[in-house]
């Protein structure tokens, strides 16, 4: 995605790596290597490379190719809410050692 402007909102934008800790708390394993397929444009992107907006009432992960929302996460005092409807799927390797040779 080509970006000509450099406003503060853009410079505050991170990626899925920034919420690796929260994701590991929720799901019990690292999710940044999960492959996600965008429900709108079909781009395949590792969760660690999804655009992340973290300074909001929740976290929003977006497709770097088309900007559409892939995953939303809200943390309340007692719960986590996760909406992953923006992804066609999330794909994780079962064997962690296989990851090393990609």
């Amino acid at each position: 995605m080509h970006r000509k402007d450099a406003d503060i909102n853009t410079s505050l934008m991170l990626d899925g790596n920034a919420i690796a800790g929260e994701l590991q708390q929720i799901f019990g394993r690292d999710l940044t290597m999960a492959m996600t397929r965008c429900g709108r444009c079909s781009a395949d992107t590792r969760l660690g490379a999804l655009m992340a907006f973290v300074r909001a009432p929740g976290v929003v992960l977006r497709c770097p190719a088309c900007g559409t929302v892939i995953i939303r996460i809200v943390e309340t005092p007692g719960q986590y809410y996760v909406d992953a409807r923006g992804a066609v799927f999330m794909r994780l390797d079962r064997d962690a050692r296989r990851l090393a040779h990609q």
Partner: peptide, 8 residues
């Protein structure tokens, strides 16, 4: 503070 769910 600037808080956003997406790009401007």
């Amino acid at each position: 503070p600037v808080l956003s769910a997406g790009p401007t």
